[in-house]
Design a protein around this nucleic acid. Structure first.
Length: 272
DNA sequence: AAGTTTCACAACCGCCTAGGC
DNA sequence: GGCCTAGGCGGTTGTGAAACT
């Protein structure tokens, strides 16, 4: 692949953006949009490369960006999602409206990583000890299976990043279950093909009963039957949920999210 | 008050992938 | 199928501000 010459060699500007440059970029995008980032700076009269313009717009100038400190809830969500997804910043960002992957990456490296390190150094309380034991017991069974699931979903193009504005309760998936397998119909009709479905023969009844009994053992209230049915397939159909029930900690996290919607749980997905 | 270190975050770099030709 | 380009992603760096000595 031939790499495009760097900005400096092309006589283009690097470094911090000035307010004037910001204004030019905003005005241009508001008027013409940003169909072609490479052509944009020239057409807008900016001495920047297209990549720099795109970064500036997506990370800073976009009107839907939320500025200011992260809330406790946002931090908790990042920590839990990072635990499940690793450094997939853009996927994590898709779950936090108004936050960019760059911002989340920064806050992780500057705050949350340290916060977690401090937390991990603290002695485990009696109740925590019990929970941690359960985690390690359940993890080896389903983790690899869940990774396989995620790879299959990715290979079939069913794990695109979800932008927050695209998520609404009106475009939920339908999910059905056959005798031998769980069929997941993808959730969103815009960039996922609603006709596509995936059959997970390895996720049989024993898998779900194992997951649900693990949840029960960890002290959660028993899930309602209709919830078990809806909860599991919908969970799997979500890109961020690709790991499935890898351990009790994950179950706990998703249970927290779902249970907050109360009795309408089996019908409504939480907004991310 | 001056110098040094640490912190926070914007911006850049290099790689990868999808898609057009 | 190979080449090329644009766009996207995660890792890293640069820089100004704040804290510390």
């Amino acid at each position: 692949m031939v790499r495009a010459p760097c900005c400096e060699k092309m006589g283009l500007k690097k470094g911090p953006w000035t307010p004037e440059e910001d204004q030019i970029l905003i005005a241009y995008i508001q008027k013409y949009g940003h169909g072609n980032w490479r052509a944009l700076p020239k057409q807008a009269g900016l001495l920047r490369c297209g990549k720099s313009c795109r970064l500036r717009w997506t990370n800073y100038l976009r009107p839907d960006i939320k500025r200011g400190n992260f809330t406790k809830d946002e931090e908790d969500t990042i920590i839990k999602l990072h635990e499940m997804l690793g450094n997939r910043w853009s996927t994590i960002a898709a779950r936090l409206p108004g936050r960019t992957d760059n911002e989340i990456k920064n806050v992780w490296h500057t705050h949350l990583k340290k916060k977690l390190m401090i937390k991990q150094k603290q002695p485990i309380s009696c109740s925590d000890t019990k929970t941690q034991q359960t985690f390690s017991d359940s993890e080896p069974v389903s983790y690899q299976t869940n990774l396989n699931l995620m790879m299959r979903l990715e290979n079939q193009g069913l794990l695109p990043p979800v932008s927050p504005q695209q998520t609404s309760s009106s475009d939920l998936s339908s999910s059905t279950r056959t005798d031998s397998s769980t069929v997941v119909t993808t959730r969103r009709s815009d960039n996922l093909n609603m006709d596509s479905s995936v059959t997970f023969s390895e996720f049989d009844d024993s898998f779900w009963s194992e997951a649900l009994s693990s949840a029960k053992n960890s002290g959660m209230p028993e899930l309602k039957p209709e919830l078990q049915f809806q909860f599991s397939p919908v969970y799997m159909s979500e890109p961020v949920c690709g790991y499935g029930f890898s351990n009790n900690k994950d179950i706990d996290f998703w249970y927290d999210l779902f249970i907050k919607s109360g009795d309408s749980l089996s019908l409504d997905l939480p907004e991310f």
